[in-house]
Design a binder for these strands. Structure first.
Length: 292
DNA sequence: CCCCAGGCAGTTA
DNA sequence: TAACTGCCTGGG
């Protein structure tokens, strides 16, 4: 990995295991949008960034050295060796060999806990395009304006206090439906009880999950998503319909309870079970594996 | 028109 | 503690 700096952009050469499409379309994030030139523009930690792959380079546009080192290096998990992870997962597992080849450039983003908490409450029983639309509207309507990039305005994801101060009716205009109650309750709980998600992040996997499930609208699957995508618990295995389908298709050959699938994955893939889940999810969803 | 989507909470037995 | 059911919304 060689990093060079130019005016308003950071270029990383020879970065292995990094593919913007795989990263942004593997279901872990909702605020990155594909542009006409094949790049992705998104907002994270209050900053607008554009990511483009060109030959052997990844170009991070609209940023500088400080932000790259302080935010993006960690956000994109650039110090983790995904080659080693894949090697570990692929051992004695032909399905995983295919899945890691298919989503070779996946990286688990280290996202903001609050934004991830609300985003995955919205994700329950919902479709990705609609989740994205709701989060965009919530940010636009209730988040702080950041600036414009290539003719489009961008907004921060609203803070707990920002959401605390809005009504259920206002929130429903963002298309979240019955989840509005959960979102408002969660904002109220965080503000009133002065909950520090960064402290919860320090807990072990089990306690962290327990804490998250105290929020309305957070069950086992959503909690595991928050754990892996924001709490750095890379052994967490969210079992959604796609992971359920792919696991039943390749390993169980029959209808299996989600809990059993989670347990199986954690035993089979150990400390990297969360990564395994992510490769399997992307593989299954893109190819429609197990879909009736 | 009907169907369902990356689950959850609330209610039964 | 497992099984069952309704649920906002909008695109196919």
């Amino acid at each position: 990995m060689e990093i060079t700096y130019e005016c308003n952009k950071v270029i990383v050469n020879n970065l292995k295991n990094f593919n913007p499409k795989h990263i942004f379309e593997c279901g872990q994030c909702f605020r990155w949008d594909l542009q006409d030139d094949g790049s992705y523009t998104g907002v994270a930690f209050g900053k607008i960034l554009n990511v483009k792959q060109e030959n052997n380079s990844i170009i991070f546009d609209n940023t500088n050295i400080e932000d790259f080192n302080n935010i993006w290096l960690n956000y994109f998990d650039l110090n983790t060796d995904y080659g080693e992870i894949k090697e570990y997962l692929n051992k004695n597992d032909d399905v995983m060999k295919e899945a890691t080849k298919f989503g070779e450039g996946i990286r688990i983003l280290k996202q903001d806990p609050w934004e991830t908490l609300i985003s995955f409450i919205i994700s329950a029983n919902n479709a990705i395009p609609r989740i994205k639309k709701s989060i965009e509207l919530i940010s636009k309507n209730f988040g702080q304006y950041i600036g414009e990039y290539k003719g489009k305005d961008y907004y921060k994801f609203p803070s707990p206090k920002d959401i605390y101060n809005i009504s259920e009716e206002q929130l429903k205009t963002c298309g979240v439906g019955y989840r509005s109650k959960y979102i408002l309750n969660t904002a109220k709980k965080v503000v009133d009880e002065k909950i520090l998600l960064e402290e919860i992040k320090k807990l072990n996997s089990e306690d962290c999950s327990k804490s998250m499930r105290e929020f309305a609208g957070v069950g086992p699957k959503v909690a595991n998503c928050i754990l892996i995508f924001a709490m750095e618990k890379v052994e967490a295995v969210p079992v959604d319909v796609w992971v359920k389908r792919v696991m039943e298709h390749f390993y169980f050959h029959k209808d299996t309870p989600n809990k059993k699938i989670e347990q199986f994955a954690r035993e089979k893939y150990g400390k990297y079970a969360g990564y395994a889940q992510q490769y399997l999810f992307y593989y299954a969803r893109e190819l429609g594996i197990g879909k009736k």
